[in-house]
């Protein structure tokens, strides 16, 4: 059945429908609010042109769907509310996306390059027998995308030959589409038995914080091994509070147990690109730079003048962080 579906999609590419792109964006939310990365994906989808449909699935879709209906340039919001999507497991979401695609025949399926999108999108691509493109930072045309490779040390431009383009988008590379000026309507997504018996969601342990969310904060203060202990991280928190900043960390600080790992910035952690990034006691290994070097302004405070972080910092301060950080906090 799928083979037929694929054949007709391929045929379309070379037929008269070739110019009519239609994109399905998979919304990310937590049953209460829409995740900001979804707004970046919508901006990316707009660059492709054509029709945009957003799919909201979860145990409670109302708030996210309502927010999305207000976004400018969306033609419709499909809603799939069911207990089957508890925990947003890729095993339950994938058949829903395949059913939705079967009904509407999209040229593009996109999601954010978050843990959610990274778990889901390759699975969808495999089921459609197409090659996914991960972590796209620029869209040159409907089939040509730019993505970073080798921890951001090279940019690869790729042309996708598959008829369906399945893509994850780097959230920090696209402006968030404002949730205003639109009036899309919601429709139910194709119904089906989507609960997977292969996986059961047990629980989530989320880190609680009053500070801004790391990947979307406009200011980030990060600490590294130079902090020497988890207790000393309070210096970072005080500075962050002064700047209304999110707090990040290098892998060294996470591995040493100073802070939980969801605070890690880098190739294997989160990618951030705030207006201001302050790196304290971080040497600047390639893997850390991969996560923050697109920040608009980078400040480094480190006592080692040879630390590689100074090669990317706009402003560097060669100083003992235990003196400089409290002084900076006081003077701000």
């Amino acid at each position: 059945m799928f083979a037929n579906c694929l054949k007709s999609a391929r045929h379309n590419k070379f037929g008269s429908l070739a110019r009519f792109e239609s994109t399905l964006v998979i919304a990310e939310h937590n049953n209460e609010t829409l995740t900001p990365i979804t707004q970046a994906v919508l901006s990316a989808a707009k660059k492709i042109g054509g029709d945009i449909t957003v799919l909201v699935a979860g145990t409670k879709c109302g708030p996210a769907a309502a927010a999305l209906c207000k976004a400018n340039g969306i033609s419709k919001v499909l809603v799939a509310e069911s207990d089957a999507f508890k925990g947003f497991t890729p095993e339950s979401m994938t058949p829903l996306i395949l059913a939705t695609h079967k009904q509407f025949n999209f040229s593009h399926i996109m999601a954010g390059g978050s843990a959610f999108g990274k778990a889901l999108i390759p699975r969808v691509a495999a089921k459609l027998d197409v090659s996914p493109v991960s972590d796209v930072i620029n869209i040159k045309s409907s089939d040509t995308f730019v993505r970073p490779i080798y921890a951001g040390n090279a940019l690869q431009t790729v042309k996708v030959k598959d008829s369906i383009k399945v893509v994850t988008v780097r959230g920090t590379s696209f402006e968030a589409l404002p949730l205003e000026g639109g009036n899309a309507s919601t429709e139910p997504a194709p119904a089906g038995e989507y609960k997977s018996n292969l996986i059961e969601f047990i629980k989530q342990e989320l880190s609680k914080s009053d500070r801004p969310e790391l990947t979307s904060a406009s200011v980030v203060v990060s600490g590294g091994r130079g902090l020497k202990s988890g207790d000393n991280f309070k210096l970072i928190y005080s500075l962050a509070d002064k700047l209304n900043a999110a707090v990040g960390a290098s892998r060294a600080a996470v591995d040493a147990g100073y802070v939980p790992n969801d605070m890690q910035v880098g190739q294997t952690g989160k990618i951030v690109a705030p207006d201001l990034y302050i790196a304290v006691g971080i040497s600047g290994a390639i893997q850390h730079l991969a996560g923050m070097k697109d920040s608009k302004t980078i400040v480094a405070i480190n006592k080692d003048p040879e630390a590689p972080i100074f090669q990317v910092a706009d402003y560097g301060l060669v100083a003992d962080l235990f003196k400089a950080v409290p002084e900076l906090t006081d003077k701000l």
């Binding site: 959610f116 047990i202 629980k203 989530q204 342990e205 989160k270």
Partner: peptide
């Protein structure tokens, strides 16, 4: 690992 912390399945 998920974005906000950990998840058990």
């Amino acid at each position: 690992e998920v974005d906000g912390g950990l998840e058990v399945v």
